[in-house]
């Protein structure tokens, strides 16, 4: 080791003092432990992942699976159509997310309000959340997608895209409303007491004191819901909307090769993985911030 380099502490910062003999020994033994752990992690990964891969590629059906699911030349051929379908999913996600945000906020505010005049709306909001949280999204899509056109109401849309989006918005608003409501309830009552003692009305307290803090807290879980929303927009394909899932379905039914499904899956992952990583980062940051606040 170069003796001219300054002594460093365990997180690599240069020390302003000369470390004792005992500290140097400790650092050396920490390094040895670290090397041992890295070796174990590598070995165990190679063994576990290696045997999994071996299990798959040596299975009797692997060759035919490879031909029907991982035919990359066919995958490349359908990429354009599937990607075009994915644009539909993305657009649907953006529009739905905006509508869900508005609708869910109204539901959450109604459910947390104590105003006597709003009682019927509060009951309706509660019933709404109970129902739409409890029914599978696929069922809601089918009921709206086939039920609403069957009513044959003049002027009401028959577009499967709009009906499918409506179903997604209805269901997700119930989920998101509950996330926002839990955020509102998580704000300590002392914040409300402080605001009320300053003369702020209950709605001013909500708007200026409770909501801004609540929303900051629920951003990470809401980002999770956004990822789920993007995936679930694939369900509207059941109504015949040509999204990525439907495009893949069309392509694979033409040739009885399932590679387009894998292609669609990969395209979804290309968006959802970065989004999930970003969510994790936001969450880690907000936990750090809250802990810092707790320490202050």
């Amino acid at each position: 080791m170069n003796n001219d380099s300054p002594a460093r502490d365990n997180s690599g910062r240069a020390l302003s003092w000369t470390p004792s003999q005992r500290e140097l020994e400790r650092q050396a033994s920490r390094k040895a432990i670290g090397r041992k752990k890295a070796l174990i992690a590598t070995l165990s990964s190679v063994i576990v992942i290696g045997s999994l891969i071996r299990l798959i590629v040596t299975s009797p059906g692997w060759q035919s699976v490879k031909d029907t699911f991982f035919d990359w030349s066919y995958g490349g051929e359908v990429l354009g159509a599937v990607a075009k379908g994915l644009v539909v999913n993305i657009r649907l996600t953006i529009i739905a997310a905006i509508l869900i945000g508005i609708f869910a906020m109204i539901l959450a505010l109604l459910r947390t309000s104590r105003s006597a005049a709003l009682t019927p709306f509060r009951l309706m909001a509660t019933a709404y959340v109970d129902i739409f949280r409890g029914v599978p999204l696929l069922l809601v899509i089918l009921l709206i997608g086939f039920g609403v056109p069957a009513l044959r109401i003049e002027g009401l849309t028959n577009s499967v895209l709009i009906l499918g989006t409506t179903a997604v918005v209805l269901t997700y608003s119930a989920y998101v409303a509950e996330v926002i409501r839990s955020g509102i309830l998580s704000i300590h009552p002392s914040q409300r007491a402080a605001a009320r003692s300053l003369g702020l009305s209950s709605s001013q307290t909500m708007r200026h004191v409770v909501l801004p803090q609540a929303i900051k807290r629920v951003v990470p879980p809401l980002l999770n819901d956004l990822v789920a929303l993007l995936k679930d927009t694939g369900l509207v394909s059941i109504l015949g909307v040509t999204d990525a899932v439907r495009a893949a379905q069309i392509a694979s039914s033409r040739t009885f090769n399932y590679t387009p499904y894998v292609t669609a899956a990969i395209l979804f992952l290309l968006i959802t993985i970065p989004l999930t990583r970003y969510t994790d980062r936001v969450l880690a940051k907000s936990i750090k911030r809250q802990n810092a606040q707790g320490a202050a």
């Binding site: 002392s190 914040q191 007491a193 402080a194 605001a195 003692s197 004191v209 801004p212 803090q213 900051k216 606040q293």
Partner: peptide
């Protein structure tokens, strides 16, 4: 005016 033991400033 009311002042609390735990300050209760608005953190945001």
């Amino acid at each position: 005016g009311m002042v609390f033991q735990s300050f209760n400033l608005f953190p945001h």
